[in-house]
């Protein structure tokens, strides 16, 4: 288990022991901070939340609620904390973007048009779809972030915005992958296309077995 996973587990365990109002207060705080941006260092952010939660536990023991301890303006507190977070490192940004690109390309490879000549890869889809996905995730984060401390009677707006982003994203992805006639294509000739797909299947199966065995190992210890 990574440090960040351990911190998250501790946060979740400690939250269970809070009173209902304090749990709601802290859940909102956690969601607001976690959705402040895609690229902030998650480990650092969760460590900050864990420290605040541990302090809240002490405050609870002294008879103070979350509002007594943190104050009644959690949004301003969070905004001030976000301002002090270190600028996301290029490495962290690239690692997230590369995961999105990797997953997209994997599905593009699996769903590409195969003929006797080989596999026809849609280059426009390979380039545009990951960009659309990153933009959609950023927009959904933004909607979630603003909905946390938004007016309670306008919560529906967040759901509508999320549904809209989701629909437009799926529509654009389908358009670029299937509907727009193939412009630039890259041909992976036979039998290399079959070898590539076999390789992907082996790596995917290996990864699945590895993840499951680690999960089983963790469960047994």
């Amino acid at each position: 288990m990574t440090n960040n996973q351990q911190t998250l587990t501790q946060i979740n365990q400690l939250k269970q022991r809070l009173a209902a109002n304090d749990q709601r207060y802290f859940d909102d705080l956690q969601l607001y901070l976690s959705t402040a941006g895609l690229f902030y260092n998650e480990t650092q952010l969760n460590q900050q939340l864990l420290n605040m939660l541990l302090d809240l536990r002490d405050a609870n023991a002294d008879g103070q609620s979350a509002i007594d301890f943190f104050g009644n303006d959690p949004q301003t507190m969070s905004n001030e904390i976000i301002k002090q977070l270190p600028t996301p490192k290029l490495r962290d940004q690239l690692s997230f973007i590369s995961i999105i690109i990797g997953i997209t390309w994997l599905f593009q490879l699996l769903y590409s048009r195969n003929t006797a000549a080989g596999m026809h890869l849609n280059i426009i889809a390979l380039v545009i779809v990951p960009i659309i996905e990153v933009l959609a995730i950023m927009l959904i984060f933004r909607v979630l972030h603003h909905s946390v401390y938004g007016a309670p009677n306008r919560k529906w707006l967040g759901y509508v915005q999320t549904a809209l982003i989701f629909s437009v994203t799926v529509g654009l992805m389908l358009a670029f992958t299937n509907l727009i006639p193939l412009g630039w294509t890259l041909l992976i000739p036979s039998p290399w296309n079959n070898l590539l797909l076999t390789l992907i299947a082996i790596i995917a199966t290996g990864t699945l077995v590895f993840v499951l065995s680690r999960y089983q190992h963790r469960k047994n210890h």
């Binding site: 420290n51 605040m52 541990l54 002490d58 104050g71 507190m77 001030e80 904390i81």
Partner: peptide, 24 residues
């Protein structure tokens, strides 16, 4: 640590100090 600091400051007269001010 955070809570000790808040308590120490409150004991020195900063009664209205909250985490919302201290953590940032």
């Amino acid at each position: 640590y955070g809570y000790q600091l808040i308590q120490a400051l409150r004991q020195h007269g900063f009664d209205s100090l909250v985490g919302g001010t201290l953590y940032p």
